[in-house]
Each structure stands twice: as C-alpha cells, then as structure tokens.
C-alpha cells in the first residue's frame, strides 16, 4: 500500500515538474544508460532552438545558433538513421561534443560554460553494428 502511495506521489511530482518546466521534458528510454541522461524532446527542442533546413556543407562551420536550429531539423527528418556512424563523421567532421566515446558522433550546438547556461549537443546514437539508430539533442553539461 505504502509502495503504491510513494509511486503515485513520485509520478505526480515528476508530472508536475514536466508541466512547470517544459524545457526538462525528456525522452524516455528502456536502455538504463540512456534513461539516466537528459535528452530534449522534439517539441522542447523546437521551442528552445527553432528550426532551419539542415545543410550538410554549411553545418560544420555554421555558428552555434544555426547549428542548433539545423539539429532540430535533423531530429525530425532523421537523416542518417540506418546509416553507418562513420559516414556522419565523414560528412560533418570530427566530434566537437562527447557522448560515451569517439565512436558516437556528437556535435556541440550550445556552449554554456562561459554564460552559465546548459551545454547541448547533437548526438547520433548507434546500435551494436555502429549504425545510427536515433538522432537526439543531449544535455552535455550543466548550469
């Protein structure tokens, strides 16, 4: 009984947190490692960064604001899902962010360390064959 009450309270609290602060709306994961990380849901990412069509040639050298807006477009279009992660790095260049290891393509789209903001990065999650399985925006670090 107590367990149920605690569970319901936790659900209610988390639900309320989500309502009060939509920027922390995160994607849920069955993978325990991923579930412990903060990823922006598409709508939160759209609200936060806006969107603009992804341009592969322009992305590597684009200013971070533009990169972030392109990242949102990538999240939606899912370009590269089903393709090898090494192809992403060939096209977009070396990682500028860090997620687990150099094998996971990650690119910073918002630097926060000098402005007391969160740092966000575009991450191409891979499957066990090194194929891109999802494209997400991950909180690299913290306020």
């Amino acid at each position: 009984m107590n367990k149920h009450i605690r569970g319901m309270t936790a659900c209610l609290l988390f639900g309320l947190l989500g309502l009060v602060n939509p920027s922390i709306a995160v994607q849920s994961d069955s993978d325990p490692y991923l579930s412990a990380r903060v990823f922006l849901e598409f709508n939160s990412a759209l609200k936060k960064f806006g969107t603009q069509p992804f341009n592969m040639k322009f992305f590597p050298t684009a200013p971070l604001k533009i990169k972030a807006a392109m990242a949102v477009d990538l999240m939606k279009s899912r370009t590269w899902v089903g393709k090898p992660a090494v192809d992403v790095q060939k096209s977009l260049g070396k990682n500028t962010g860090h997620f687990w290891s150099a094998t996971v393509p990650a690119y910073i789209i918002q630097e926060g360390w000098n402005e007391k903001k969160d740092t966000w990065q575009l991450v191409f999650l891979i499957d066990k064959r090194g194929i891109v399985s999802d494209i997400r925006i991950h909180r690299n670090c913290c306020l």
Partner: peptide, 18 residues
C-alpha cells in the same frame, strides 16, 4: 569534469582532465 569545467568536451582541456 562537468563540475569543474561545465562541459564534457573533446580534444580540449576537459577531455584531458577526464
């Protein structure tokens, strides 16, 4: 690394620290 550098970078000082 995140506590001290407020970033988790690659090829930079935070990477070396980590």
């Amino acid at each position: 690394c995140q506590r001290i550098f407020h970033r988790d970078g690659v090829d930079d000082e935070s990477d070396a620290f980590r």
